[in-house]
Each structure stands twice: as C-alpha cells, then as structure tokens.
C-alpha cells in the first residue's frame, strides 16, 4: 500500500510535535511550584478517568455518569486492601479493577440496552447508588470519616511520595492509556464501534454484536476509572466519601465533553481545564462552580467537538492537501 506525501508529512509533524511535547512534559516540574505540580498530578488522574468516559461517549454514544462510582471503588479497594487486609499495593489496584469491571458487566448487560437519555440517567442513578453505599458501608469505607494511612507506591525502592515524584508515575500511565485507546480505536473493534455509532441497523447486519461490544467497552472504562481511583488513593493517602460524590462524575463528563469526545488526546486538555480552572477561578470567589456549569453549557452548544475536535479540524486543514473529489469518476 502506498502512503500519500500528504499523509507522510502529517505523520512527520505529528511525531515532531509529540516528541516536543514529551520534552516539555519531562522538564515542566523542575520549574513549577509544588502546588502547581499537585494540580498537574490531578490532571493526570482525571485524564485517566476521563479517557474511559470520553471513549464511551465518543465511540459508543454512551453518556456515563457512573465513573465516579468506579473511581471510588478503585480508591476504596486500594485503601481497604492495603490498610485493613495488608495486601500488596498491586493486588489492591487489580482487585479494584476486577470488582469495577465485574460490577460494570453485571449492571451494563441490562442497562446498556437502553438508549440515549435513558442510559445517561441510568448511569447517574448508578453513581448515586454508589455514593450512598460508600457512605453507608462504614466497615469498608469508613463512611464520612474515611480511611487514612494508605501507603505510597514504591518501585525498586523509589517512593512516589511527593507531587514531583508522583507526576512521573501518573502521566506515563495516562500516556500509555492514551496509546492503548488509540490502538483500540484504529483496530477492527474500533471500526466496528464507529460503525455502530453511524448506522446501528447496518452494523447489526454486518454481524457486529452491538450490545456485547458496548458492555465490553463499558467494562474497560470502569476498570480504567478504578485504576485512576486507586492511584488517587495512593497519592493522597487519605480518602473519604466526599471525593466520590456526583460532582466528581460530572467533572469526568465535563472533561470528556470539553476535551472532545472524538479525540483521545483531547482528554488531556479537558482534564487540565477541569483541574486548573477552579484554582485560577477561585480568585474570583465562590463563583467558580457557576462558571464551570456555564462552561459545560457553552462547550456543548458551541464547541461540540471539544478542544480536541477544534485542534484536529484546524490541523487537518493545515496539513492536508486537496482531496480527490468525492463525486468525480475514475
């Protein structure tokens, strides 16, 4: 197969920009305050959780507000596993992902047959159920008192104890997941997902098992959300039910929408906005939650492709040469 010079040029540019971005990323913490690095760490955590929501919405058309629940399960699995059961850290993290995935499968099989707003409200209901359970199951979660003393992650004797150090743990995870999701998008499965989004009837005729694929992606998204929650627990070392309320589900959705649901790397932009904006807006006083809500409205109305969609359409305009006409004959 031949690659057109345009495509080649676009690829070269993509690589160059990615490489430059990585250099900036690696150098950044050396020049920033602890507080700013802390924000960037949260942006990394939220990128991970937001990726799951974004992919679900953009590729499967599923609005998921349940991610805060899975984020919570991941956090409590890490906390309870290490503090109460004395399990090694990776076991807690994996247990959280397995439990989240299992719950997502059990709930997803019936719920994902719903469509549109039904589905969105069903996932919101799930988030509420999860939040109440986090509050009520005190033996497991510590209720409002929470769980403290969660150990830091250590690799080869190096402890990720400070924001500076954790930055170099969370972002590689986020980058890896961006890579994985991109691979998934361009695979046969990804094509099938986009196909069923475009024309569900024809996708069914092509033998694409629509519900089962949606359930699988939902399970994947839950596991990824759980991973983010576990990392969060090991980073802050104290968690309480307040971190897993509905507003967290909403910030994850906001990340996806702002970042652009069709753009996987766009999630980073969404997460940076959601974590950094309140910090700067808080100078204006408590008005920032209002501005946040307005941002969601404005983004949905005026920027349906999000930051990512905006960048990629501009990018395509800049790099692509003239296309062969769609109507002309051979």
């Amino acid at each position: 197969m031949t690659v057109s010079p345009d495509t080649q040029r676009a690829r070269a540019w993509t690589w160059a920009i990615t490489a430059a971005g990585l250099v900036v990323w690696a150098a950044l913490p050396w020049f920033l305050s602890r507080g700013t690095i802390d924000i960037l760490v949260f942006a990394g955590l939220y990128t991970i959780a937001g990726l799951g929501v974004s992919f679900l919405l953009g590729q499967c058309g599923i609005v998921s507000l349940a991610q805060s629940g899975f984020y919570g399960i991941g956090a409590y699995a890490a906390a309870y596993g290490t503090t109460a059961l004395g399990l090694p850290i990776p076991v807690g993290i994996i247990a959280g992902m397995v439990v989240s995935g299992a719950i997502a499968a059990a709930v997803g099989i019936p719920v994902l047959r719903l469509s549109g707003h039904f589905l969105a409200l069903a996932t919101l209901a799930l988030a509420i159920i999860a939040h109440v359970l986090f509050l009520e199951l005190e033996w497991l979660t510590g209720g409002t008192l929470g769980i403290g003393g969660i150990p830091r992650i250590a690799l080869f004797g190096f402890t990720f104890s400070t924001p500076f150090r954790f930055y170099y743990l969370v972002w590689p995870c986020a980058f890896a997941l961006i890579l994985f999701y991109t691979l998934l998008l361009n695979s046969r499965t990804g094509i099938a997902l986009r196909a069923m989004r475009d024309a569900p009837a024809a996708a069914a005729v092509a033998g694409i098992p629509i519900t089962s694929l949606k359930v699988r992606i939902f399970v994947l998204s839950a596991a990824v959300g759980s991973l983010a929650g576990s990392l969060f627990a090991h980073y802050v070392s104290f968690i309480s039910v307040d971190s897993f309320a509905i507003d967290r589900a909403i910030s994850f959705l906001l990340i996806a929408v702002l970042g652009g649901v069709r753009s996987i790397p766009g999630t980073i932009a969404g997460a940076l906005f959601v974590t950094a904006a309140p910090n700067y807006l808080s100078r204006l006083g408590d008005i920032h939650p209002i501005l946040f809500a307005v941002a969601l409205i404005v983004a949905v109305i005026f920027l349906p492709g999000g930051f990512g969609g905006f960048v990629s359409s501009t990018w395509r305009r800049l790099t692509a040469g003239p296309r062969p006409s769609a109507t002309g004959g051979p």
Partner: peptide
Amino acid sequence: RRGTEDSFLLVTLGGAFA
C-alpha cells in the same frame, strides 16, 4: 446547531449545576 438527544440532556444538566 442540530444538537443530538445527548446534547439537550447535557446542556440542561449544565443548567442544573449552574
């Protein structure tokens, strides 16, 4: 702007938070 079913839900959710 020919919003989808989801966009209507999302804007009203945004309104609810506001």
